[in-house]
Amino acid sequence: MNAEVNAPTAPEKKEFWRWQESVWVDETKDWKTAKIVTCGIDVGSVSSQAVLVIDGELYGFNSMRTGNNSPDSATNALAGIMDKCGMKQEDIHFVVGTGYGRVNVPFADKAITEIACHARGANYMGGNGVRTILDMGGQDCKAIHCDEKGKVTNFLMNDKCAAGTGRGMEVISDLMQIPIAELGPRSFDVDVEPEAVSSVCVVFAKSEALGLLKAGYTKNKVIAAYCQAMAERVVSLLERIGVEEGFFITGGIAKNPGVVKRIEKLLGIKAMETKVDSQIAGALGAALFGYTLASKKAAAAAA
């Protein structure tokens, strides 16, 4: 076999696209007194989350970068949160896997698509008034419409093209040599709001961005033009499924005000606020589905 090809080893360089990983546990609750402990694991293309739900309430989560394979990423995400609260895997009654790697979660009792999980998670985080959900993930973008129970009524998912995804934003952050968390705030630090970059394609937008820098645009202004293009693109996806009040944004890009504020402006609707990390919506939804399923199982066993 011709195996002399080595992966290009990354030189020591700053990784501008790298975002913050996090672990959180609700210290006011005690899982040991809970009747049902369930877990949702969302193995995305870029990030993986494990969420613990006790008796139908959010208890803790761990969000980290997806590694080379889905089973390890799922295991590591879960281990991170179990360590934090001194839990063992046998203490968990039901595990639901979701996301791009959902069928590769070795210890999952069931796999549910991220569309249904995001709707369920958003319904918990934003309340039953949530109708329109936008999930901007690492390698896809989903527009979901749901009812008051968090059941999906209309959805679309775009995973064909990097435009409008977190990956597209990472490309620009790397190109501009600006840490990804700073892109949003910087995009508002401009003299006048520029027009959106005209290219939808990330590859072409990259050359266009370089051209704009050459033409005298500041880095901030180029970032603003890119954020605007991204906002216009996701708004066109939302329009296909119909936008209704009760607008909730999940996924990593929800943390980028440069895109969020511009989407709100285009739609004329403010996104609902949440105290919980927007990236966990999918895993949270999965854990809540797990709670429903575990409750049914317990009820059936008791009967």
Binding site: V152, F155, L156, V200, R233
Partner: peptide, 16 residues
Amino acid sequence: MIANYGYKDGSGEYYI
């Protein structure tokens, strides 16, 4: 539920 399968890219919108 309306399930839309497809994508939008530079050339247009293609959903079933």
